[in-house]
Design a binder for these strands. Structure first.
Length: 605
DNA sequence: TACGGAACCG
DNA sequence: CGGTTCCGTA
């Protein structure tokens, strides 16, 4: 058996992945945002992540088209958006009509790396959202099932990301199809076939994700995607000597962990460099990676849930390529260290790759409710759409009308208590702190064991969950800076800054085994992270708890227990609870990890 | 215009 | 789960 280091199921839930069939509203919004074509209907505005829906009806229409819900309208769409508030994916910008704000810091991109929203090139005028763009990178496609995963190859898969902006172009078409995208056809196309033109979006996505490892066989890809992989991969064959394989499990974890920070130093990120506040983030691979990482975590934390980002595996952040040393040893961690992937194509290159995207089947109407078709509510039908397509087929049966159900609470309901998290509000004053969660990587990933190798232990979900809950609010409200911060910050940038961590970690532990110079830095960062993290964790915990308290608890706890055993650093309950003491432990663990990693990496160093 | 509960759906 | 639909409220 292969070691299946597969990651636990729970780790992947394909359903919402980018490639997966159901597109999520926020994904969609992002897509629209990135396209200039739609700038008149929706566009970035103001702050980082803030966008305004200029033409609500149109947006709704587009969305409806995408989902094959002809009856969609802004009211409904907005409801959906409102649900995002709780998830913290979005916030409403108060006072401004139709204006919402993404919580990029924690979320998104992860799923849709390709979206580089703002990047658009500079083309976008002011509106350009400073959003981080495509961070495509390594996002791995989550296999549906663990079983799928399996092969080591798969691992490799995650390969380097491609950070291209491809996305942008790619995305374009996305809006359209109800019919078209649909499954069947598209699958075929994508499959490798080229599809050169159609559905750019899909392709793009796919391309992004695609692993470029040649090694991956179709099969593997196939498994991963569930779709046949595109054949040719544009990337060079594995550059890594070691072969792409490394113990997968380790690497991911490790890499995540240490990586981010460590590299930072070396790379001057443009973003940092440039003071641009809020403005855009550089698309350099490094940044992106980092960003991604960060997001990744966020995501998790976020609740976006694993699916969004399978735990570390997916991310694995490739290390930023080390500029100088080309050599790049094949550190383990890096399987994919960024190979030289060609990120090149920035401009808008279309990638030839198809992506699978399934659209959903035609809608049925809803059974119950509907009533007589109220016939159109008057959406403006046609016309506008740029891309034309859309909705062709949706069967719309729905005519929702009036059948009203009594829906009343009627009987018996057990009293539900809802607890809302009050704190949400915090956003207001919230500190922007945090963010840095990335460090979770450590914990979260703790997985070293988890995935662990050979055995796949199921990582306790709980851990994550709990942790993940949400720490996130963080930056959300940030004024404008996030991008840069985030990026750079990812590791510490933001955190530091915000937190005031400043760069100085005390380097308590003197030596690192490797002796490498690198180490120290890494360690430092780590520590820092850990600390931060802790803080966050605590905070978050508290907050969350409120809200979720009721629900989750039980399970969570259990999970924790396990967790505790497995990895200390993975915040066991205790650790969380315990402020410092635990922290130390954690640190040490981290150190170890770091060390380990270093050793791996140290080639580079 | 915006919010959010509730039921329902896939 | 992630909406969609509907609705009452503000």
């Amino acid at each position: 058996m292969q070691s299946g280091f597969a990651f636990p199921d729970w780790a992947y839930k394909p359903e919402s992945s980018p490639g997966s069939r159901q597109i999520q509203l926020w994904h969609f919004i992002l897509e629209l945002l990135r396209k200039e074509e739609y700038h008149d209907v929706i566009a970035w505005q103001g702050d980082y992540g803030e966008f305004v829906i200029k033409d609500p009806d149109e947006v709704a229409r587009l969305w409806g088209a995408r989902k094959c819900k002809p009856q969609m309208n802004y009211d409904k769409l907005s409801r959906a958006l409102r649900y995002y508030y709780n998830k913290r994916i979005l916030h409403k910008t108060k006072g401004k009509r139709f204006t919402y704000k993404f919580n990029f810091n924690k979320l998104v991109l992860v799923n849709y790396p390709f979206i580089d929203m703002g990047s658009a090139g500079s083309s976008v005028p002011q509106s350009a959202p400073p959003v981080p763009s495509a961070v495509g990178t390594h996002f791995r496609f989550p296999p549906s099932t663990p079983s799928d995963v399996l092969s080591p190859n798969a691992e490799e898969l995650r390969s380097p990301g491609v950070f291209t902006s491809v996305a942008r172009r790619a995305a374009r078409g996305s809006v359209s199809d109800c019919s078209d995208g649909t499954s069947v056809a598209s699958e075929l196309e994508e499959v490798g076939i080229t599809a050169s033109d159609e559905r750019p979006a899909e392709r793009a996505f796919r391309s992004l994700f695609l692993p470029h490892h040649p090694r991956l066989t179709h099969d593997s890809l196939f498994r991963m995607y569930g779709v046949p992989p595109p054949a040719p991969v544009p990337f060079p064959a594995s550059p890594l000597p070691g072969g792409p394989l490394l113990p997968p499990q380790l690497s991911p974890a490790l890499s995540m962990t240490s990586t981010p920070s460590s590299h930072l130093p070396y790379t001057p990120s443009p973003s940092l460099a440039s003071p641009m506040p809020g403005s855009r983030f550089s698309f350099s691979p490094e940044d992106m990676k980092r960003y991604l990482q960060a997001h990744a975590q966020s995501v998790y934390n976020y609740h976006l849930s694993p699916r969004a980002f399978p735990h570390y595996p997916s991310i694995v952040v490739p290390q930023p390529q080390r500029p100088d040393k080309g050599l790049a040893g094949p550190p383990l961690g890096a399987h994919f260290t960024a190979h030289p992937l060609h990120h090149h194509q920035q401009p808008e290159e279309p990638h030839p790759s198809p992506f699978k995207f399934k659209l959903q089947p035609p809608p049925l109407g809803r059974k119950h409710r509907d009533g007589p078709p109220t016939s159109a509510t008057g959406h403006a039908p046609s016309g506008t759409t740029s891309t034309g397509l859309f909705v062709g087929e949706c069967s719309s049966s729905t005519g929702r009308g009036s059948n009203s159900l009594p829906s009343g609470p009627g009987s018996g309901g057990p009293p539900k208590i809802k607890v809302e998290s009050i704190s949400d509000i915090e956003s207001e004053e919230e500190v922007e702190v945090t963010e840095i969660s990335e460090d979770d990587s450590c914990d979260v990933f703790a997985p070293t064991h988890c995935n662990g190798g050979p055995a796949l232990l199921p990582c306790p979900e709980g851990i994550m969950d709990h942790e993940e809950d949400e720490l996130e609010e963080d930056v959300f409200k940030t004024p404008a800076a996030p991008p840069s911060g985030a990026v750079s910050g990812i590791s510490f940038g933001v955190g530091m800054t915000l937190l005031g961590l400043k760069a100085e970690p005390r380097e308590g532990s003197p030596s690192s085994p490797g002796g490498t110079q690198c180490i120290p830095l890494k360690l430092r960062f780590k520590r820092r992270w850990s600390e931060d993290q802790r803080m966050e964790a605590e905070t978050e915990e508290a907050e969350d708890k409120k809200s979720r308290a009721e629900k989750d608890e039980p399970s969570t706890r259990e999970a924790h227990h396990q967790a505790g055993q497995l990895n200390d650093e993975g915040r066991s309950p205790a650790s969380l609870a315990a402020p410092l003491g635990a922290g130390q432990r954690r640190v040490s663990s981290e150190l170890q990890k770091a060390t380990a990693q270093l050793s791996l990496e140290n080639n580079m160093c």
